[in-house]
């Protein structure tokens, strides 16, 4: 039994210790927004925030999360009131089938915080972090989209961050 705060609500996850955070979230509070893609940490569809940091929920045992705060896609927006990132994904057509989208949005949300914190990426180099298409592509490489909506996803994220210049700039 693990007491966890999920989207601000206290939940007791009653799990076999083998159960992952991903399966527990989907089956106990019934938060099916978090998707199971590869189940091996390779696709990012299960990305959630654990104590504010993005992780692959498929590789976290629920029993490890006692006392932690979990935020899922259901906790980013407020009901019909979508989060600005979700609105940007719609505006830029940042999906086709939509299966990877909750993970993309959670990942992007945390990624923008990482940039704000000044955390470097593989393309940052020695200096300060500056959000640009190359940074977004590198930092989002843990979220696969089999429909190939990548160019629009990059646009949506940059737009949401106020960093989108002329239309189409991000895709180049």
């Amino acid at each position: 039994m693990a007491a966890v705060s999920v989207n601000g609500q206290d939940v007791t996850l009653n799990a076999d210790p083998r159960t992952t955070l991903l399966d527990t979230l989907r089956e106990q509070p019934g938060l099916t927004g978090t998707k199971k893609g590869c189940d091996h940490g390779q696709c990012g569809a299960c990305t959630v925030l654990l104590d504010g940091r993005r992780v692959n929920a498929c590789l976290v045992l629920a029993v490890q999360c006692e006392g932690c705060e979990v935020t899922t896609i259901e906790g980013l927006g407020q009901g019909e009131q979508l989060h600005p990132l979700q609105q940007a994904f719609i505006r830029h057509d940042g999906f086709q089938c939509g299966y990877c989208t909750p993970g993309q949005v959670c990942s992007a949300y945390a990624m923008l915080e990482e940039v704000a914190n000044g955390e470097p990426s593989d393309v940052t180099g020695d200096g300060e972090v500056r959000l640009c298409p190359a940074e977004v592509r590198e930092r989002m490489s843990g979220n696969l989209c089999r429909c190939g909506a990548y160019a629009n996803i990059v646009d949506a994220i940059l737009d949401s961050a106020g960093e989108l210049g002329q239309r189409g700039e991000a895709g180049q």
């Binding site: 990305t47 692959n56 590789l59 945390a110 470097p120 593989d122 930092r139």
Partner: peptide, 23 residues
Amino acid sequence: VRQRWPLLSAALLAGATAQLRNR
């Protein structure tokens, strides 16, 4: 680490994804 052991920072950032490196 970034200032004095940039080799280590660069190697870490060349591996995996942000989700995995966070964990």
